[in-house]
C-alpha cells in the first residue's frame, strides 16, 4: 500500500518520511495510553517461556512466550493449523495423550513447572480443567456425569455429592432445565445443553483454571450466547483460557488476546505455529502492532 502511495508522486521523499515518523509516534503514544489505562496485571497463573511443541520430529508450534493472569479471560485466536489448540492442551498436559508429543521450554503454573519430572498429570488436570470442542457427555445419567469428577477424586458422601451437583449445574446455568431429570441419560440433551453439562462436569471438581477449546463452534448462536454469558459470570472465580476462531467472540468475552499464525518452511513444506502478538483485547483488535495481526483482524487473511 505504501508503495502505491509513494508512486503517486504527489509527495516528496522527505515529506513522506515525516508522515511515517508521525504515524509511528502516534502509535507509540496510543500504546502508552493503553498501558496506563490497563490495570496492573494480577497474579500470574501461567507463564510460558519460549515453548516449542513437537509431534515426533515435526515442530508444531515454536517459541511461545506469554503469561495468563488470574480471573481474566484470555483468548487464543488465529487461522486453522496455527497451533492454538496445541498450546492450550499444553497447559494441562493433555498433549501427553498423543504419542510422540514433546514440549521444549518451560511452562509454569503459579510458579511451579508443569513439566518437571515429578509432576503428576492427573494432579495437574484436577486443577486445570478442560471443555472440548464437541460436547462429550458420558453415556451416564446427568447426575452421574457431574458427580463423576468428585467421585473419582474420593468424594463418597451422597449429601455432599448432591450439593456439588446442584452447585455445578447452577454455575453452568443448566440447573433449572434438568433438575427434574437428573437420572436421565446425559446423551439426550441438545448441543447447547450438553456443552453446559460438560462445563458443569468440569466445574464440579473445583478447578483453578478452565481451558476451553472452541466450546461454541458446534453450537447455534443462542447456545453460544448462553455460554458466553456463563463465562463472564464465572470469570470472577476462575481463570479462563479460550481458543476460538470467532473473532467477534474474542472481542465479546476476553480481556486479553493472543494471535497465532503460521510459519511456512519452504524447504520441508511444513507449517509451524507461532505466537505473533499478545496484548489486551482492545489493543489487539483496534490497534494491532504487527501487520499479520492487522491483516487477520481486519479480515484479509485466515
Amino acid at each position: 500500500m505504501e508503495q502505491a502511495d509513494q508512486n503517486t508522486g504527489n509527495f516528496s521523499e522527505p515529506a513522506l518520511q515525516q508522515v511515517q515518523t508521525a504515524q509511528q509516534e502516534a502509535q507509540t503514544a496510543r500504546q502508552q495510553e493503553y498501558q496506563k489505562a490497563e490495570p496492573a496485571p494480577g497474579t500470574h497463573v501461567f507463564d510460558t517461556d519460549n515453548v516449542s511443541i513437537f509431534y515426533g520430529s515435526f515442530k508444531a508450534v515454536t517459541g511461545v512466550s506469554l503469561s495468563v493472569y488470574e480471573n481474566e479471560i484470555t483468548a487464543f485466536i488465529g487461522p486453522s493449523g496455527c497451533g492454538k489448540t496445541t498450546v492450550l492442551r499444553t497447559l494441562n498436559r493433555m498433549n501427553d495423550l498423543v504419542e510422540g508429543a514433546r514440549v521444549e521450554g518451560d511452562v509454569q503454573y503459579r510458579g511451579a513447572s508443569l513439566y518437571a519430572s515429578n509432576v503428576s498429570p492427573t494432579a495437574v488436570r484436577r486443577r486445570i480443567g478442560m471443555v472440548f470442542q464437541k460436547p462429550n457427555p458420558f453415556p451416564k445419567s446427568i447426575y452421574d456425569n457431574v458427580a463423576y469428577g468428585p467421585r473419582i477424586n474420593g468424594e463418597r458422601n451422597k449429601g455432599r455429592l448432591d450439593e456439588i451437583v446442584e452447585r455445578s449445574l447452577r454455575q453452568a446455568a443448566l440447573w433449572d432445565e434438568v433438575k427434574d431429570r437428573l437420572k436421565h441419560s446425559g446423551l439426550g440433551l441438545s448441543g447447547g445443553q450438553a456443552q453446559r453439562l460438560c462445563i458443569a462436569r468440569t466445574l464440579a471438581v473445583e478447578p483453578d483454571v478452565v481451558l476451553m477449546d472452541e466450546p461454541c463452534s458446534a453450537l447455534d448462536p443462542i447456545a453460544t450466547g448462553a455460554i458466553e454469558d456463563l463465562m463472564k459470570e464465572i470469570k470472577s472465580e476462575y481463570t479462563i483460557v479460550i481458543v476460538t476462531h470467532n473473532m467477534q467472540q474474542a472481542t465479546r468475552v476476553s480481556d486479553r488476546t493472543a494471535f497465532y499464525s503460521v510459519l511456512r518452511d519452504e524447504k520441508s513444506d511444513t507449517r509451524t505455529g507461532v505466537l505473533v502478538e499478545y496484548g489486551r483485547t482492545e489493543q489487539i483488535f483496534e490497534d494491532p502492532a504487527d501487520d499479520r495481526t492487522k491483516a487477520y483482524v481486519t479480515g484479509r487473511m485466515g
Binding site: 503454573y109 511451579a112 509432576v119 503428576s120 494432579a123 486443577r127 478447578p207
Partner: peptide, 15 residues
C-alpha cells in the same frame, strides 16, 4: 476450600 494451592510445586507432584 481454596482451589488455589498454597504450594503449587508440591501440590502437583503426587506419586
Amino acid at each position: 476450600g481454596p482451589a488455589i494451592p498454597a504450594d503449587p510445586a508440591r501440590a502437583l507432584s503426587e506419586r
